[in-house]
Amino acid sequence: NLSVLEAFQDLKDKLNYPFFMEIIILGSWAIWITRNNKIFENIAPSFQGWKFIFKEELKLLKHRMKQKFDRQFSVWLDSLL
């Protein structure tokens, strides 16, 4: 049984990207937007809807990414699209 910190570290090790925290934050943000869409817009939540929001937020993040991570982030992002 993993603690929250152990699970977080395990995920960080598996992702192995310097922009790991941004991935986690934007994934959570996409969940929040999906939740708000259900509450305020009556849009049924779905994995596909969450994934679309997540990818759109990642595309916006690319514009703020440090130049030294730009290539690695672009490759990772393209693998999702």
Rank of each mutant, 00 (worst) to 15 (best):
W76G: 07
L2K: 06
W29S: 07
F40G: 07
K68N: 11
R64G: 07
R64N: 15
F19S: 02
I33G: 01
L15D: 03
S3N: 01
P45I: 02
E22C: 08
E41N: 12
E57G: 04
N16R: 00
S79F: 04
L58N: 03
N1I: 12
P45Q: 06
E6Q: 12
N42T: 06
A44K: 15
L15V: 13
I53Q: 06
A44P: 08
K68W: 05
H63P: 00
Q48I: 10
L60R: 14
I39T: 11
K68C: 12
L2Q: 03
D78T: 01
K38E: 09
W29V: 11
Q67G: 05
A44S: 15
E57A: 15
I43C: 11
I39Y: 05
L60G: 10
E56Q: 15
I25F: 10
G27C: 07
W50L: 14
R35S: 05
W29G: 07
K62N: 08
V75C: 07
L26G: 05
N42A: 14
W76H: 06
W76S: 15
Y17D: 03
P45Y: 02
E56H: 15
N37S: 12
L26D: 02
E57L: 15
Q9I: 09
K66W: 01
L5Q: 05
M21F: 08
K55G: 06
S79W: 02
F40Q: 04
F73W: 08
A30V: 01
E22G: 08
F20E: 00
I43N: 12
D70V: 10
A30P: 02
I31T: 08
V75Y: 05
R71A: 15
Q72S: 15
I31H: 02
G49M: 11
Q67D: 14
K62I: 05
K59Y: 08
K66P: 08
F52T: 13
D13P: 00
K38R: 15
L60I: 13
L60D: 15
E41I: 04
L11N: 04
H63S: 14
F47A: 05
Y17G: 00
G27Q: 03
K14H: 04
L26F: 09
W32M: 09
I53V: 11
A7I: 05
L60Y: 12
S46I: 07
E22F: 09
I43K: 09
N1V: 13
N1C: 03
L11C: 10
N36A: 06
I33R: 05
W76L: 13
H63M: 10
S3R: 03
D10M: 06
V4P: 00
F8I: 04
Q72I: 12
D13G: 05
W29D: 14
K12R: 00
F54L: 03
R64H: 07
W50F: 08
V75I: 12
R35N: 06
K51E: 10
M65T: 06
F69T: 14
L77Y: 07
V4M: 03
W29M: 14
N42C: 12
F54M: 02
K38G: 01
S79Y: 04
E22Y: 07
V75N: 13
D10W: 01
F40Y: 03
Q67L: 10
S79P: 06
W29F: 14
K12Q: 07
L15K: 09
N37G: 02
R64L: 13
P18C: 09
W76Y: 14
F19G: 10
K55C: 14
S46T: 10
L60N: 13
E57Y: 09
I23L: 15
F52W: 06
